[in-house]
């Protein structure tokens, strides 16, 4: 039998490992290094210190990558022969748009995991990711407007991509509003998870309907497609920025999930025994 991490919810004792062998139940063994217990970190009490160790790593990584990416996008990447200097905002715009979509998918992953395995941490992760996703969606729209003004001569076009990004922002806001309105955290987690899953099923439908609506309304608009013709330097810059945004997302989400854990588990003994709480 694999070792099971047990966390006593009643007394709030620290997790311990034991083997559920018949006759020896309750006997404490040292952790077997060859067996990986996948559920070990699904307990907030064990995940909290792990997240605490990971946050600085990813924060430094994010700073370094975004620093290098910004330097490259301002000084290394060549000026575009058609769009001039103004195009440089896509080094923020495109990674932000990517992240806003990825984060929703990751939220859906945690939501499904939480509904299936009924783990508390999954709901907290979904909750911790949502504000970052909303910020990236907003950032993508905002930088898109800054890009559109010099290029298209207007702040906003009812382009299929812009519209679906806006709808994605609405989906994030709906999730956050629902979370905010429910006081019972267990219900908030499960209701939010269901909403995220419904949203994920709907995203392709919304995307294609918006695209079709757009082509029917105004024919061919200005194409935003410049991915294939992009220079190697520009592509690398964009990739570095995207990786930097990934690291930022992970760092911020983990820092936020630590706060959520502390808030929700405030009554337990392990929280009151933490060094930072006792100070």
């Amino acid at each position: 039998m694999p070792p099971v991490a047990k966390f006593n919810e009643v007394t709030g004792t620290k997790p311990y490992l034991y083997y559920q062998t018949p006759g020896t139940a309750g006997l404490h063994y040292p952790m077997n290094s060859r067996l990986i217990n996948w559920f070990k970190f699904s307990s907030p009490a064990t995940f909290y210190p792990l997240a605490g160790r990971l946050v600085p790593i990813f924060a430094v990584l994010a700073l370094a990558l975004i620093g290098v990416g910004l330097y490259m996008s301002f000084f290394v990447a060549p000026t575009d022969y058609k769009q001039g200097e103004g195009y440089r905002i896509i080094f923020v715009h495109v990674p932000a748009a990517w992240m806003s979509m990825f984060i929703y998918l990751i939220m859906a992953f945690w939501a499904a995991l939480g509904l299936v395995f009924n783990t508390r941490l999954s709901g907290m992760m979904t909750r911790a990711l949502a504000p970052t996703g909303a910020i990236f969606a907003f950032l993508a729209l905002w930088t898109g407007a800054f890009w559109g003004k010099p290029m298209w001569g207007t702040w906003w076009v009812w382009d299929a991509r812009l519209t679906s990004e806006l709808i994605l922002l609405f989906l994030y806001l709906g999730y956050l509003a629902l979370q905010g309105a429910i006081d019972d955290t267990r219900r908030a987690d499960r209701a939010g998870a269901l909403l995220v899953l419904v949203g994920v099923v709907n995203i392709p439908i919304i995307y294609y309907s918006v695209q079709w609506w757009n082509t029917l309304h105004q024919g061919a608009t200005i194409s935003m497609d410049n991915g294939s013709k992009m220079g190697v330097t520009m592509l690398w810059t964009m990739l570095i920025m995207a990786l930097g945004f990934w690291a930022y997302t992970i760092a911020v989400a983990l820092a936020r999930v630590r706060s959520i854990i502390l808030e929700r588990e405030a009554d337990t003994t392990w929280v009151s025994e933490l060094a930072e709480v006792r100070l």
Partner: peptide, 18 residues
């Protein structure tokens, strides 16, 4: 939930778009 009516609109309207 309190403020359920406004909340419903926020949740449901994006899904109504298609």
């Amino acid at each position: 939930l309190r403020g359920g009516g406004v909340l419903v609109s926020l949740l449901v309207l994006p899904l109504y778009i298609p």
